[in-house]
Design a protein around this nucleic acid. Sequence first.
DNA 1: CCAGAGCATATACCGGGTATACATGTCCTA
DNA 2: TAGGACATGTATACCCGGTATATGCTCTGG
Lengths: 205, 205
Amino acid sequence: MSVKHALLALLEQQPMYGYQLRAEFEQRTGTTWPLNVGQVYTTLTRLERDGLAFADGEDGEGHVIYRITDAGRDEVATWFTTPVGRTQPPRDELAIKLALAVTVPGVDVGTVIQQQRSATMAALQDYTRLKRQAAAGAVPDAGADDGSGGADLAWSLVLDSLVFAAEAEIRWLDHCESRLRRAAAGGVGRRNARLDEEAPARGAR
Amino acid sequence: MSVKHALLALLEQQPMYGYQLRAEFEQRTGTTWPLNVGQVYTTLTRLERDGLAFADGEDGEGHVIYRITDAGRDEVATWFTTPVGRTQPPRDELAIKLALAVTVPGVDVGTVIQQQRSATMAALQDYTRLKRQAAAGAVPDAGADDGSGGADLAWSLVLDSLVFAAEAEIRWLDHCESRLRRAAAGGVGRRNARLDEEAPARGAR
DNA sequence: CCAGAGCATATACCGGGTATACATGTCCTA
DNA sequence: TAGGACATGTATACCCGGTATATGCTCTGG
């Protein structure tokens, strides 16, 4: 639901049309999560259906202008005041992959971990390179108002978020490696982590 | 695509029926990501459509047994050997929320951050509590094979992944707070972060 | 005997996300 | 100046992930 609420928050700031909403969104999140235009319009349709926004005619250039409603303003307020994530974290593909790699025989978990670490470290370098670019491109000192409304700061914070997540991923991979080594050395769970055949038939019932 | 590949990996280990696949999946990921049964069957249908698995009659109890194909085995192999995430990381709702909170006037970013930190720390405590339970429930020393096939180890690693992610989130929130404080003190971007009205009209064109 | 619970399969439905169609306007250039 | 490339702008078709629900079945306890 993040796109829906993000669009609502932008509409709260100012009435806008679809294409403009995409531009504003991407100005704040940069190249991280390019927003497909189609999704903007479908989301706007749903927002109108749910009474959170409505198309309010056209401006001078023929753009369909959307406005937020009072219900929409309430929705934005609750979105900002309600923390996210405590219920069900989104499925983590890497965690699922490793959980399967550990339990399914015939998979070399060590290689999976090593390759993933390399890829994540490469991504980390990309992020730091992007951060350098962003720092260079930013206005060194915009006295009163540079017109960006802090969009470059937001984009920088998003980048930091990716960096922190990638670093945590690498730490977790190291942690998995050492735990697997310990398990292989000790008595418990010395199977898997190497290709050993003949899995016992163990159904659910 | 993580569910699709996870089911394929399970089918590579052994032919199974739908309900059994869900049980095997949840045994490895615990209560983290409960898998809806319906998704299993729709995914199986798609797997059959794409030639990665096929329904191979019934077993004694009348269960529809699915088998993996050679193409499916290839798919699993490439899944395990190809790292994940370098292309487009999944949308992070929290990052989007904060990016919007920073750029949209009238939002108290400090409160958003503080509330989120509290919620994340609560989740962190839940995770460590679950880890204690898992450690207590695990077989202390299963000499040869406890029949779980390392499912408890996988579930424990998944939990660790959640812990690492939550810790990184908290670190990022602290980082955001200090950056915002610095921005508020310095010259650049002293707007936002406080409710100041009268946003200048700045459209995309 | 039957009410409820767990097992098992299947389908309807919605939201997220991508690709694509289509139309307009602008700008560059052969 | 005609035309091609390109950005702007809106809209729709389509697939996949995810949830809820319908429908049987078996087993068990009161």
